[in-house]
Design a protein around this nucleic acid. Structure first.
Lengths: 354, 354
DNA sequence: TTGTACGCGTTATCAT
DNA sequence: ATGATAACGCGTACAA
């Protein structure tokens, strides 16, 4: 059943026509039997199913996509530099999202959004070329080039990890601010009065929220903003580990030493702790450390590292649910800010100051 | 230019026909101008490019794919359980592969191969439904169900990390055996005579090669095979961290204590070290530890962990090169076993026995 | 060098 | 309930 008319035919499998022929029905009946099993006679449906199975028939996704004008692929846009901040959680995010998507009949395509034009163009081609039906974005910047912008692609987009509701994107985030406020309050309660804050890229959502949480806790406790020193922040596109190393140097240069460190990612906390210990400081005796992410490895640091665990699994599920809602019911208004609460895992890295 | 004939029209962008009309040429000329810029008059090409840019035209990938009978999407098949073994390297692998693919005009789709039938079916649908043009697989098992098997999908497949040349798949691996032999020899040279080996899933390629390397080193040094005790191995589908924890218990139960530990992944080495130190052992004074993967975090363990670094970046590039070669020149025989040498990063976790 | 016409595999409309 | 047929958007022989 391969009509070869001058055009080279690839290694293509059985077609719907083959199934139809074997089942002794029309091709359109096969189509229905497979899509709307209800709208076809019980017996003929059985015949068709049998024929399809016998031939090992699989519908051609591109043909279907072309015909119905929709694809069933979702794209996830990852930040170009995987090693800042939430990098530890990427594999879990992917797995969670992919699992949820597959359940609903979708596929997951990966896109990396770097600083180069090529990566922006690639993403826009995916969007405007009809390859993808929707996008989940883990980066704060929306691709825009040559007058085409992802925002205006007519594509449902959901943001995850970062709150981009200001930009009109429904977002799934965790309670960064509140969590940071709580943990800072805990430290204050333990007796800490001077803090070092390890920042990711300055001014981005996580920085604003998390640092904001720290400041609020200080204020509530009647402490001045000067109780906290910032480190990192200006080091875009670096591994979190590097930020921790740099922060250790910063710490060494401080006259009035902090007694507690609040890091915005596990990576930087880990490298920072390591450097501190090399310098002879004991944790938590001389210095308490807490961080953000909840990477499994924290349980096995020495000392075990207290961390705010991001509920990545649930966030992924929520992002998918939101996106599919936007696809299936475009008219419906979506909740713009969806908060999934984090969980603080307290371990031996924090204690009362000496 | 939206011919709407009873069929609901989605938010579809400008078509080739629109570009043709604006440029005042035939639709086929536009097609050529965009695909083979050489085979069309300089001036008309300019007109067409201008029109395309003005309209913000992006070719529809599904329509093209259907027409040419090929997709430009590659799928990467990840093991269902991300946290065993090489899990630490997944983000780097994805980034490296995606970058290489995009440069050649391909997209990357993700697939997770779990133990469930659904995930197998999903992968097979992707393959047989023409959605993907080739696959890179990081799992040892090929999906097979209902008589359809990935191996017989007529799809180029390349294996990465695991050598599956036995199964007929060109593979990109590192020199696991040799690297393990070298590091074991190093330990022997330092004076170690009793070893603990932390295994991943027993009998898989990594286990066979790496454990084989250890045994060879022992033999070369005139030591008996009984000089090494195995731990782990039977704990499929677990986090590497759990294996290290379990191994610590095993260690505690040993009468004749090993003085050196060889782990097959960084995860298990890290959790193992942590537990050992809780038990009061000092590393490397009482116990040397080396592992495999080269995760960045190893540099910041206490003590810094010696590890065999997998050249993930290069392996990804090689896998892509191999796959594209298989796609572009199907007749050409490919090198079945492509070895990219690892690099041993020696750190403070290893020393001479007390 | 450019235009005409057809088909890729599927779904949706319409008529039976 | 089923069958014939016309698109979906694009690429390519072929004719001009």
């Amino acid at each position: 059943m391969k009509k070869n008319k001058g055009v080279p035919v690839e290694q293509s499998g059985p077609l719907m026509a083959d199934v139809a022929q074997l089942a002794g029905v029309a091709i359109s009946t096969v189509s229905r039997a497979l899509a709307n099993p209800g709208r076809v006679n019980e017996k003929t449906r059985a015949k068709i199913d049998a024929a399809a199975k016998q031939l090992g028939y699989t519908p051609n996704a591109m043909a279907r996509g072309l015909r119905v004008g929709k694809s069933n692929t979702i794209m996830i846009i990852l930040p170009g530099s995987l090693y800042y901040g939430a990098s530890q959680v990427i594999p879990q995010v992917l797995q969670s999202i992919n699992k949820s998507l597959i359940k609903e009949g979708y596929n997951l395509m990966i896109a990396n959004l770097g600083r180069d034009e090529a990566s922006e163009r690639h993403i826009l081609d995916l969007a405007f070329g009809g390859t993808v039906r929707g996008a989940i974005i883990l980066s704060s910047k929306l691709p825009e080039i040559d007058g085409r912008s992802l925002a205006s692609a007519g594509l449902p987009i959901v943001s995850m990890l970062l709150d981009m509701s200001d930009a009109g994107l429904p977002s799934v985030v965790t309670n960064d601010r509140e969590a940071m406020q709580d943990v800072t309050a805990d430290l204050i309660r333990l007796g800490h009065r001077r803090f070092l804050y390890l920042a990711g890229p300055e001014g981005n959502y996580h920085d604003v929220e998390r640092y904001g949480g720290v400041l609020e806790a200080l204020e509530k406790a009647g402490l001045s903003e000067s109780a906290v020193v910032r480190s990192g922040g200006n080091l875009d596109y670096q591994q979190g580990f590097d930020i921790g190393v740099q922060a250790a140097d910063d710490f060494a240069g401080l006259a009035d030493k902090p007694t507690a460190v609040i890091a915005t990612s596990d990576d930087m906390a880990i490298s920072f702790m390591s450097r501190m210990q090399c310098m002879g400081l004991r944790i938590p005796d001389d210095l308490s450390v807490v961080s953000f992410d909840g990477s499994p490895v924290c349980a096995f640091c020495s000392p075990p590292l207290s961390t705010i665990e991001q509920p990545v699994e649930e966030m992924g599920q929520a992002a998918v649910a939101l996106l599919l809602a936007a696809i299936d019911r475009p008219e419906q208004k979506l909740e713009m800010r969806n908060v999934i609460r984090s969980r603080f895992i307290q371990r031996e890295s924090m204690a009362a100051p000496a």
